[in-house]
Simulated scan of single mutants.
Amino acid sequence: MASNKPPSAADQQLIEHAARHGFTITVKQLAIWRRAGLLPGNIPNRSLRLKGYQVYRFGGHELGLSAAPAMLHNFFGQLVEHQH
């Protein structure tokens, strides 16, 4: 059964970001990936926090900057140091 529901704002950002990098992702593909457990659902931060997760979000614009690889490298380095 196909849904004509428009993508969420987060899904739309992901679709547009992928398109800027030459990839085509559809709302249907995102749904398939979520059902397969390859992509998290659109869960508000509070739901994740209640389940014990720490949430660190990056914006589509932020990830599209030329400095994004260095920023992510630094972030994950700091995250690993913080957990030890």
Score class of each variant (00 low, 15 high):
residue 36 A to C: 10
residue 58 F to R: 00
residue 15 I to V: 13
residue 24 T to R: 12
residue 72 L to I: 04
residue 31 A to W: 02
residue 11 D to N: 12
residue 3 S to P: 01
residue 75 F to W: 09
residue 2 A to P: 09
residue 57 R to V: 06
residue 46 R to S: 07
residue 60 G to T: 11
residue 73 H to M: 12
residue 37 G to Y: 03
residue 14 L to V: 10
residue 29 Q to K: 14
residue 45 N to P: 03
residue 21 H to M: 10
residue 4 N to W: 12
residue 81 E to C: 03
residue 53 Y to G: 07
residue 1 M to N: 14
residue 1 M to Q: 13
residue 28 K to W: 06
residue 51 K to C: 01
residue 56 Y to C: 09
residue 42 N to L: 03
residue 6 P to E: 06
residue 14 L to T: 11
residue 39 L to A: 04
residue 76 F to L: 06
residue 45 N to E: 07
residue 42 N to S: 05
residue 66 S to H: 07
residue 70 A to D: 04
residue 14 L to M: 13
residue 6 P to M: 07
residue 8 S to N: 08
residue 17 H to M: 11
residue 51 K to Y: 01
residue 72 L to Q: 06
residue 80 V to T: 07
residue 17 H to V: 12
residue 47 S to W: 07
residue 21 H to E: 15
residue 48 L to H: 07
residue 39 L to S: 02
residue 45 N to H: 11
residue 15 I to K: 00
residue 6 P to K: 01
residue 76 F to R: 15
residue 67 A to I: 08
residue 46 R to C: 05
residue 84 H to L: 05
residue 33 W to H: 05
residue 8 S to L: 15
residue 62 E to Q: 05
residue 57 R to N: 05
residue 83 Q to L: 14
residue 8 S to W: 11
residue 41 G to S: 07
residue 42 N to V: 06
residue 29 Q to D: 06
residue 79 L to M: 10
residue 44 P to Y: 10
residue 61 H to L: 08
residue 55 V to F: 04
